[in-house]
Design a protein around this nucleic acid. Structure first.
Lengths: 336, 336
DNA sequence: AACGTTTTCGATAGCGCTTTCATCGCATCG
DNA sequence: CGATGCGATGAAAGCGCTATCGAAAACGTT
């Protein structure tokens, strides 16, 4: 590896001057600056990020914290898309992405300790158990943090407009004539709570009856469970005409339940998802859902995090809400 | 941040001794070792990975190189699952994962230069354009590399048994009575070639006719294109009884084409996918496919890469093939 | 008691970089 | 012409850590 010293020797200047020239300081003449930059390029110089980090205490590395048990995590399309846009935006700002966890190798450590060990400049927390002690430790630490879909006091977060999303879905469903709507929700979480609130408010503002039997708690990303509860709902004597599913993926479980019972989706029973994943437009009938703007969420999170790192004085903590959009599929039929 | 020096001061020993004690060297007495380790824990000490890397030239960081244009990449389930298991295995061995790309921020650089900049100990290359100059540069560099689903001379790789997978699918399809089989394949690549070879060999070994019109090149992960070609195949006067799709995801495009034409999957036309993604068992009818063992592939890649890094003398380059398994869904019907 | 051997520890150098401060030449000015 | 200021450069320190080597201490042996 070619170092600053190599360049300095070849050009007959000091290491300090080379460093300044390459970092665009102004106290070095244009002439030598040009000469040194040219030499650096010719010699294939690249700075050693470790050495620089050691000196400056800045790694230009961002930690990504998320849960990866139970096959979720990377496999989760919402998260994958989010991470993708976050990554692109962060890279554009000059930051790399590193996964942060607890216990790397034989070295026992908490996630926060891991952050310290790697010296990440900031952390994004998404798709995880926000009540875990690992999250708590990071939140209360001194590293800039942005959380996704969960807010903490004195911290920044990016949220999908979950409440409004559900409301729009209820509006649409109602406009199609549905009055008997069941609601299967995901794991207990801030997101689930927001959505449930949106659902309940919207229902009651329309004067629609909310049967407690029709509010069911299942799990996100679990089609089997949704399958089970969908059957349960449809086997009752009083059937809902429309069922809200926890998310698009688990909605497929609902689809299968309905099909298995010999009913027709969008005619006998309508279905509503949430997320707007790619499959939503591929399944038949196309799923009516609310598309979260994962790209915007990722970008917003990256920008906020970078701002918190680079301009801590002039950056304030805030809750950024990103709107999504209703996707009218074919899974909600008209009722007369 | 508490450093070695802090510990050394508090315990009245030298920095060197503390370092040795914490790294388990044998030239320090059990007594002091114990004492120092205890103090380190009490003081919340964690080594500074940058400083260590600077000295040892080992970062315990692995670079992941993959394409993320065109919405593929992280969103690709095959890759996401692969990365997940790779990550878990690597972390178990004490390595972190960092994404490696070209041009981070304003700093123009090739992927290889990025690796040098971050000093990654090794690189895994997957899901990318293996003919790109960026890959070429890394392959010819001096960093340990493992490639997925593509082999290079003098380098290690992990492959899915693509050839055999397709053969098993042909065997099964044939056993269900199919003789008129069409084959839609993905982008030109080593994988596509292997699979095509498997298909052609298997077909001819059974004496089945291979119509050149029925070998179509589409794209991986592109349901729209598969939709188009599936229609094209079925609109011809001579219809295949079974169509092989590039992958499970694009198979959904085929499903839709068939449904839109008023035909029934598994009865009028049979469908075969490839990959074994989660949706394969959720769509209806369940997709017959060949499940790649992404977990094993990721684990094998991580193990090989770590071996190449840690025991370069006793590790040889090899091509590791990971077997998958036939998934009999409901999309291939019996023909009399 | 004298010597060799082993164990335990510390001083030191240096990884590659940035940053502070001193230096020095040179133009400017009263 | 000496004082002043300014632009350009370099010497040196140090970030936190590991590795080398030599010193010192402890031990065993005759």
């Amino acid at each position: 590896m070619v170092s600053l010293k190599d360049i300095s020797v070849r050009c007959g200047v000091s290491v300090a001057t080379v460093s300044k020239a390459l970092n665009g300081h102004k106290d070095v003449s244009e002439a030598t600056k040009e000469r040194l930059i040219k030499a650096a390029k010719e010699m294939g110089y690249f700075p050693n990020s470790q050495a620089r980090a050691l000196k400056t205490n800045r790694t230009y590395n961002l930690g990504v914290m998320f849960l990866d048990e139970a096959g979720s995590g990377l496999t989760h399309e919402f998260f994958a898309r989010l991470l993708n846009s976050f990554k692109i935006e962060a890279e554009g700002a000059g930051y790399d992405i590193t996964f942060i966890n607890r216990d790397m190798g034989s070295r026992k450590m908490t996630t926060y300790e891991h952050c310290k060990y790697r010296n990440v400049d900031g952390v994004i927390i998404a798709c995880t158990d926000f009540s875990s002690s690992d999250v708590y430790e990071v939140i209360n630490g001194d590293i800039p943090v942005v959380t996704i879909d969960h807010t903490f006091e004195m911290r920044s977060s990016v949220l999908s407009n979950n409440e409004q999303g559900i409301e729009e879905l209820v509006d649409y469903t109602y406009s199609m004539g549905h009055k008997k709507i069941a609601y299967i929700q995901g794991n207990r979480s801030a997101v689930a709570e927001k959505r449930l609130k949106g659902f309940l408010q919207s229902m009651s503002s329309k004067g629609l009856e909310i049967k407690s039997d029709w509010i069911i708690t299942a799990e996100y990303h679990n089609p089997e469970l949704t399958y089970k509860y969908t059957r349960q709902l449809l086997e009752g004597s009083d059937r809902p005409t429309c069922i809200f599913m926890p998310d698009d993926y688990s909605a497929i479980g609902g689809y299968n339940a309905i099909k298995d019972m010999g009913l027709i989706i969008g005619k006998d029973v309508s279905v509503v998802g949430y997320d707007g994943i790619a499959y939503a437009t591929l399944v038949s009938p196309k799923l009516t859902t609310y598309a979260q703007d994962t790209e915007k969420i990722g970008v917003a999170a990256a920008r906020k995090l970078v701002a918190l790192i680079e301009e801590p004085q002039t950056t304030f903590h805030e809750v950024i809400t990103i709107g999504g959009s209703l996707v009218k599929g074919e899974s909600v039929g008209k009722i007369n």
